[in-house]
Every structure is written in structure tokens, then in C-alpha cells.
């Protein structure tokens, strides 16, 4: 059974159509890039999959079941903007995650944070933006999830931090789990992707294996994207 299946997802806000007939199947063990320009519906789709927004039409199935409590247990989600209270210390946040998620591996999180030489008694608000992003990624990747959904994990961080983030994703996703990463920073991320989904004006316009696409177009995913969306 597919890990994730979106069937005819539609979403409108008032008269404005945000997503139109999204059909999507995500198998196990893949890293998938959800690529699109700003404001094309990537985050909306991600929020629908996470049951944070309700689709106007269509349905989302995770392991064949409608989304809800069960799907939230097995999806580890990194939102675009943090929901954590920044006056909390990292120690407190780890406690919070331990209480909240029974598949959260606190030892693993502490180990990864120790690699970063991070003082866990520090409040989030006292850290740089890059460090806050790393902490949140570590927390999300320390859950033994079946599907990781990362919304713009590379936004606003320096290239060295981007490398750290990509490596952390690669070395920490569970075997058999899948990862969906939304971004518009394609050249940074394309080396780790199996598949790409191009989304434009609320529609999926391309869904392909990365290396097949490179062979067919004789270009990088970044270049193909630029050609397709030339302004």
C-alpha cells in the first residue's frame, strides 16, 4: 500500500483556487522534492497532508487510511514557521517533544545537538536563525516517523548550514521512510532527491524521477525548472 496518496485535492479560499486536482502518490523509501515558485500552493498542500487545513474537495490517504490522529503519529512535520515558544530552552523543548510524541528519540536528539556543540540550556530566542533552524530539524528528524515533511528547511540559512541540514536529512531518515522537501532552492538540494514534483499555479505540472529527467533533458533539475518558469 502507498505511504501517501492524494486524490483530486482541491482547495479554495473564497473564490480563489489555490490547489486544483492534485493527484499524487508517494511510495516508501524515497526523497521527493516539491518544487515551485513562491505562492504556488506548496505549503497549502503540505498543510492539507498534515491535517492542518481542510481540503475543499478530494482526500488524503496515509497508509490507506484517512488522515487524522493515526497519520499524525507517523508524519514528522517541519513547518515553514516555527510553532515553538522561543522563550523555551532547548532542554525544555526536548521534554516537550518527549511528552508529545511517543516515537521521539530524545537520546538521538541530544546526540545530534551535542555534535553541533550546542548549549541546551540556552533559550531559542538567544540563538541565531541558522541555529534555530538546525535545532528544529534535529527535533523533527529524531522522530522515528514513516514520512518526514519538511517545508522550506533551507530558507534563509547560509550555505554551510544548508549542507548540514541536507546531511542531517540523509543520515537520519528511517530506512523505509520517505521524505518530502519543499523548496525553491533547487540547486542546493537536487543531489539528494529521488523524484521531483513541479507545482505551478496550484497544479502538478511534472512528477518524475530525477536522474531520468536529467538524462532526458540533458540538464540539471535547476536548469529545467528555470527554463520552465522563465519569467
Amino acid at each position: 500500500m502507498e505511504l501517501l496518496k492524494c486524490v483530486n485535492i482541491n482547495k479554495s479560499f473564497g473564490n480563489k483556487k489555490i490547489l486544483e486536482d492534485i493527484n499524487l502518490t508517494v511510495p516508501r523509501g524515497k526523497i521527493i522534492g516539491l518544487l515551485g515558485q513562491n505562492g504556488t500552493g506548496k505549503s497549502t498542500l503540505i498543510k492539507i497532508i498534515n491535517d492542518l487545513l481542510t481540503a475543499t474537495g478530494g482526500e488524503v490517504l496515509v497508509n490507506g487510511e484517512k488522515i487524522g490522529v493515526e497519520s499524525k503519529k507517523i508524519i514528522s512535520y517541519l513547518p515553514e514557521r516555527t510553532y515553538l515558544d522561543k522563550s523555551m530552552t532547548v532542554d525544555k523543548v526536548i521534554e516537550f517533544f518527549t511528552d508529545f510524541y511517543d516515537n521521539f528519540d530524545a537520546d538521538k536528539a541530544r546526540r545530534l545537538l551535542a555534535d553541533l556543540k550546542l548549549d541546551t540550556s540556552l533559550k531559542l530566542s538567544k540563538m541565531s536563525k541558522g541555529m534555530q533552524e538546525k535545532v528544529q530539524l534535529v527535533l523533527v528528524m529524531s522522530r522515528k516517523a514513516e514520512l518526514y515533511i519538511l517545508d522550506e528547511p533551507l530558507g534563509g540559512v547560509d550555505p554551510a548550514t544548508r549542507d548540514y541540514i541536507l546531511d542531517t536529512i540523509l543520515s537520519n531518515f528511517n530506512e523505509g521512510a520517505s521524505v518530502i522537501i519543499s523548496t525553491h532552492l533547487i540547486s542546493d538540494i537536487e543531489r539528494i532527491l529521488d523524484e521531483v514534483i513541479f507545482i505551478d499555479k496550484g497544479r502538478i505540472i511534472l512528477h518524475s524521477d530525477c536522474d531520468e529527467l536529467r538524462t532526458k533533458e540533458n540538464a540539471s533539475i535547476d536548469e529545467i525548472f528555470r527554463r520552465m518558469f522563465r519569467c
Binding site: G29, I31, L170, S171, I192
Partner: peptide
């Protein structure tokens, strides 16, 4: 495959291929 993929910093499926 997994360790090789980590060494070369690529996706395990790509390494397998």
C-alpha cells in the same frame, strides 16, 4: 549501501543504482 551513500552524501537509492 547506506554507509556508502552517507560517505558520498547521496541518497541511498542513487547509490544502489
Amino acid at each position: 549501501v547506506r554507509d556508502l551513500a552517507l560517505n558520498y552524501k547521496v541518497n541511498p537509492n542513487t547509490m544502489q543504482r
